[in-house]
Each structure stands twice: as structure tokens, then as C-alpha cells.
């Protein structure tokens, strides 16, 4: 039974929600606009830190603190987008990956009174938890987790609806056209730069909400949660679901966490409870890495046999870029 319930539990937990949102932001960037943002972790980190520090150190109420987090992520998008979006696509990739690392080190090493280095920011959840309508936990989730998940999945639903509306609008059409060929869009009188900036901001803000949910779920904001793996796992989830589909980051993220958690449970049972695999071949400390190996293998198989992802359209993929 554990083999089923534990993965299900993990696939919908607050941490999974945070990755769903991060991947949804990347879907706007990469899936629809063709922007290569390798620093989604930076948006989540800036959102989470701005909210956490505002509440813990400056006693800002919860809602204004969230708004502050959104504002900082917009600023970050402007900071990274204004100098690079006029240039070739690779420059944004270089800048975002660098900024994400710079910010992580900045949060680790500076302003220790506010950021508390590796210990991270904590003590900012009371405002959110006081609004919790649940009186007790259920389905194996604690009362607090349940509340974070409710809000988190509502946010996912809201951003799915927003994305769905936007990509069906003329605005979304311009984004998709920019992904196909910027110069063609420019020749038809659209300000490409302006649209790319809007897309970067929108995806970044969704990523910041991922940061909020992750922070509230863990009740702390630690710099190492926002390393490069964060971005690449979110990208993996997006590709798994199939880029440029509204629901693909959601399904991709849930499946990814479910699979990861299933492997963890299965391997530890094979070693411990069932004793099928002897200690000399695999011990419990190695499970963490082995499950990523298996996930990597299944991703390779996916790319070979279903390169468009779960929701993608193979016909669309078959069309060559030019």
C-alpha cells in the first residue's frame, strides 16, 4: 500500500505545488515565447526571501509582504530583461543562469542579520497559518500542509486559467510568433522587445508564487533550495508534460514527483523490509542518487519515443523550424 500512497502524497504536497508553479512560469518563457530562462530559481528565491524577510524582520503583514515579493520579482525580470532581450536569445540564458547563482551566494553570505546565511529565514508563517480554516489534518497531511496545499492548488488553477486565456488571445499569438521568428513579427509592426519583456515578467511572477508556496510549506527560506537544480528540475517537468500546453507543467510536475517518490519507496523496501537487494550492491544512502539515475533513464526513453512530451502534438514537432 505504501508504494501507492507515499508517491501520491508527495506528488501533491506543498513542495510539488511550488515546482508546478515554477514550471508554469517556464512554460510562458520557454514554451510560448521561446525565451531561455535558466534562472527560474532566482525568481522563486527573490519572491520567497522578500516575503520572508519582510514579515520576519520588518513585521509587514502577510498580504503586503506577498505583494512586495511580486514587486521584487518584476524588478528582477526588468533587471535581467532590459539589457538582454534586444540581443540574441543566448544572452538571456547566460544572464539568468549567472544571476540565479549570484543571488544564491548573495543570500548565503551577506546581510546575515536578515538572511541568516544557510540557516535561512524563518518565523514568517504565523499570519498565513492563523487564517487556516482546517481544524485538523487528514489524508496523512498535517493541518498546515493542507492549508498551504489548498491555497497552492488554487493558485495553480488560477494561473492555468490565466495562461489558457492569454495563449488564446491575440497577445498569446504574438508570443508564439516571436518564438517562431522574431524578425517576421517585427516586420509586421509589433514591438518584439516589449512583448518579450512582458512574457519574462509574467513567467517570473508565477515563479515567485512558486517561491511563496515552497517557503510556506517548509516554513523556512533557505538559499540552497534555490540552486540550479531547482530550475532544471522545473524544466524537466515542463518537457515531460510537453512544452507550450497549458496543463503540461502541472501533470509533468506531479508525475515527476510521484515517480521520484515511488522509486524512493520501492528501493528502500527492496533493501530493508523485503531484503531483495543485498547491502553490498546498494545501501540506503545511495537510494537518493539511484532514483535520479532511473528518472534520467526514463527521460531519455521519453525523448526517444515521445519527444513531444505527454501532451505535445507530434505533427507540430515534425515541422522543421524553417
Amino acid at each position: 500500500m505504501d508504494l501507492l500512497t507515499i508517491p501520491l502524497h508527495d506528488a501533491f504536497a506543498p513542495l510539488a505545488v511550488s515546482f508546478v508553479l515554477a514550471a508554469m512560469g517556464l512554460n510562458i518563457h520557454y514554451g510560448y515565447t521561446g525565451l531561455l530562462n535558466f534562472g527560474q530559481a532566482a525568481f522563486a528565491a527573490v519572491g520567497a526571501y522578500a516575503m520572508g524577510v519582510a514579515i520576519a524582520s520588518f513585521d509587514v503583514p502577510f498580504i503586503p509582504a506577498v505583494i512586495l515579493g511580486v514587486l521584487f520579482s518584476v524588478l528582477l525580470a526588468l533587471l535581467m530583461g532590459i539589457p538582454t532581450l534586444r540581443l540574441r536569445a543566448d544572452y538571456l540564458a547566460i544572464v539568468t543562469i549567472a544571476v540565479a547563482e549570484v543571488l544564491r551566494l548573495f543570500f548565503t553570505t551577506t546581510n546575515k542579520d536578515y538572511f541568516h546565511a544557510r540557516d535561512g529565514v524563518s518565523g514568517f508563517t504565523s499570519g498565513f497559518r492563523n487564517a487556516n480554516p482546517y481544524s485538523e489534518g487528514m489524508l496523512g497531511f498535517s493541518r498546515n500542509d493542507l492549508w498551504v496545499m489548498t491555497v497552492g492548488w488554487l493558485l495553480v488553477a488560477f494561473f492555468c486559467l490565466l495562461t489558457w486565456l492569454l495563449v488564446r488571445s491575440p497577445w498569446g499569438r504574438v508570443l508564439k510568433s516571436i518564438r517562431e521568428d522574431e524578425d517576421a513579427v517585427r516586420s509586421l509592426g509589433k514591438n518584439v522587445y516589449y512583448y518579450k519583456l512582458q512574457a519574462l515578467i509574467l513567467g517570473g511572477v508565477i515563479g515567485a508564487f512558486g517561491g511563496f508556496v515552497g517557503a510556506l510549506g517548509l516554513a523556512s527560506v533557505q538559499p540552497d533550495s534555490y540552486n540550479l537544480d531547482f530550475t532544471f528540475i522545473a524544466f524537466t517537468m515542463l518537457i515531460l508534460g510537453g512544452a507550450a500546453r497549458v496543463l503540461s507543467p502541472v501533470v509533468g510536475a506531479v508525475l515527476f514527483w510521484g515517480l521520484l517518490s515511488f522509486l524512493q519507496t520501492l528501493l528502500s523496501k527492496l533493501i530493508g523490509e523485503w531484503g531483495v537487494i543485498p547491502d553490498s550492491i546498494l545501501n540506503s544512502e545511495q537510494i537518493g542518487n539511484v532514483r535520479f539515475m532511473v528518472v534520467g533513464l526514463s527521460l531519455m526513453l521519453l525523448m526517444i519515443y515521445r519527444p513531444q512530451g505527454i501532451f505535445g502534438d507530434k505533427k507540430e514537432l515534425a515541422i522543421d523550424g524553417r
Binding site: R173, K176, S177, R179, E180, D181, D183, A184, V185, S187, E316, I319, D320, G321, R322
Partner: peptide
């Protein structure tokens, strides 16, 4: 000169 149609639209 090299046509720029938006292939996936």
C-alpha cells in the same frame, strides 16, 4: 529573401 513564415502557427 528567405521566407519567414511562422511554422507552428
Amino acid at each position: 529573401q528567405l521566407t519567414k513564415v511562422l511554422s507552428k502557427l
